[in-house]
């Protein structure tokens, strides 16, 4: 995998998210209360709600438009709703957040 630095962990609010613009569209980068970081599609499969604006609880996020809940680890909708959001490999090195370049449609650096 080829990792790209997208920012410092403190740039993402605790129990919050920020957006990254990528070739595959806007990707939401989430930070949980336990300082875990996840990257997933910003768009809810239900009505396209911006998931980066949802409330982050545990390792889940609730869509701000109609309260669909998604696991940030698997991307699966929770409870009675059926659907899935794309997730992308992301990791922390020191205090920097790195995202897997290839998975978000970026060619490896020449």
């Amino acid at each position: 995998m080829s990792w790209i630095d997208i920012g410092h962990i403190d740039d993402v609010p605790l129990r919050g998210a920020r957006l990254v613009k990528t070739p595959v569209g806007c990707v939401a980068v989430f930070r949980t209360a336990e300082d875990q970081v996840f990257a997933a599609s910003n768009s809810c499969p239900h009505k396209g709600g911006p998931l980066s604006e949802g409330i982050v609880h545990g390792t889940k996020v609730t869509c701000p438009l109609h309260n669909w809940v998604f696991s940030l680890e698997t991307g699966e909708a929770q409870g009675a709703d059926a659907g899935r959001i794309a997730t992308y490999p992301v990791r922390i090195e020191g205090k920097r957040i790195l995202i897997d370049a290839a998975s978000v449609g970026k060619k490896a650096a020449a």
Binding site: I4, I6, G7, D11, V12, R18, L19, V20, K21, T22, P23, C26, V29, I97, I99, A101, V104, K106
Partner: peptide
């Protein structure tokens, strides 16, 4: 956005 990696 925290980063924009589309340009490169």
């Amino acid at each position: 956005p925290i980063a924009d990696i589309t340009l490169e």
